[in-house]
Design a protein around this nucleic acid. Sequence first.
DNA 1: CCGACAGAAATTGTCGACAAATATAAATTA
DNA 2: TAATTTATATTTGTCGACAATTTCTGTCGG
Lengths: 227, 227
Amino acid sequence: MHLANPTKQTAVTTADKVFEQMQHAIVEGEIPSGSKISEPELAKRYQISRSTLREALNRLEKCHLIERKANVGSRVVDCTIEGLLELYITREALEGMACRQAAKNMSDEEIVDMKAMLKLHGQTQELKDGTAYYQEEGDLDFHYKIILGSHNRQLIDLICGQLYHLVRMYRCQFGMNSPRASRAFNEHSQIIQAICDRDGELAEMLMRRHIAASRKNIENKIAQQAL
Amino acid sequence: MHLANPTKQTAVTTADKVFEQMQHAIVEGEIPSGSKISEPELAKRYQISRSTLREALNRLEKCHLIERKANVGSRVVDCTIEGLLELYITREALEGMACRQAAKNMSDEEIVDMKAMLKLHGQTQELKDGTAYYQEEGDLDFHYKIILGSHNRQLIDLICGQLYHLVRMYRCQFGMNSPRASRAFNEHSQIIQAICDRDGELAEMLMRRHIAASRKNIENKIAQQAL
DNA sequence: CCGACAGAAATTGTCGACAAATATAAATTA
DNA sequence: TAATTTATATTTGTCGACAATTTCTGTCGG
């Protein structure tokens, strides 16, 4: 299993473990989007008390996977088109800035590391052309590396700790298997070049275009489906 | 008291109330930055059980006012220069985008409402020139209005629900009483004009400069203090 | 005197039960 | 029958106690 959250170490407490299980279950739609969450039922299913379940629910709420209302209960967030587009707008802002900061703050080792990863992605892409899964994972790894390279804890926590769980959820539930793999690969190359040149302004611009292109790609797909 | 969080309705459960009290206490430094939080002690102080205290702590963690480590405990986040600058970088990205979206999505009524507010701020500034407090509150109100005007729940929640508590905390603890009031007022006017013209690109650019200027102002102050 | 180790104290994590609030079902009335 | 009210049942919020882990304290050996 690839790392879902590169900032946190492995879970120790049982609430952490249940949180991770539920996170996967929600992201992959096993617990359906929009459904109500029954505390007694889930506590029984995971063999834990309601207290620790509520602890897990709090963490799920932190990454916006569920929503709670006082004296009413929790619901899994429902995946809407508007929500997806809003998410991409936010990503564009945050990851654009993270990319600018990465160009400024990444160490030389981090940069060569990132280049190596890109090279690897190019090879696997040649081999497994068509099956987009590896590119899918690779895309997330690429973005993670840049975000971490910003060396800005605020950005890192917001994007990796919160937004990206939602991103993965939408990708799963809408079956978005990165259809623009080769194009994305070229865009990734350009971005890394800009970071390599320490050109923060260009790096931010390219990253924003990269994400905006992804968003527009989705919008087109939606428009197509509506026919 | 002015509204700390315009998105949430008034607190109903006791955990909510304790959360709000602790939030104020932390923002204003009554519970010192960087200090460890003793669950038994605070539970006794607020006359509640540890369970509801922990519920309140979870909400404090959600807005990044405290940090928790498993089996160790919670600490109030400590205000460092680096943290402050990182926060402003993040604000620049998020509020810049929010401003762009506001230019696109704000209703005409919202715009005239915002204009009226600006006019009011100009008057109070004339009257109370020098005492920056009203401008301080006004500044936050201005930013809130634009963020809400983005009509993007993701942005609204991230900025208003999380970042701004930290912003207020830093303002309190570092005693930043908005020393650039008149200049900020002019910048606000320009931004509103751009929104009025539905020029999202310019609006984002101006907002980013506005926040970047504020950040640089802080950097200069710090450099001055270091002498 | 310093560091490693063992035991004691305190703190956090987890549990089951009760109180308060909400949602559901039944009953009454127009 | 439809709407409103009442009663029931379920769910959430809160509490105090126990278990597991960490931190502190004091002792011993080098």
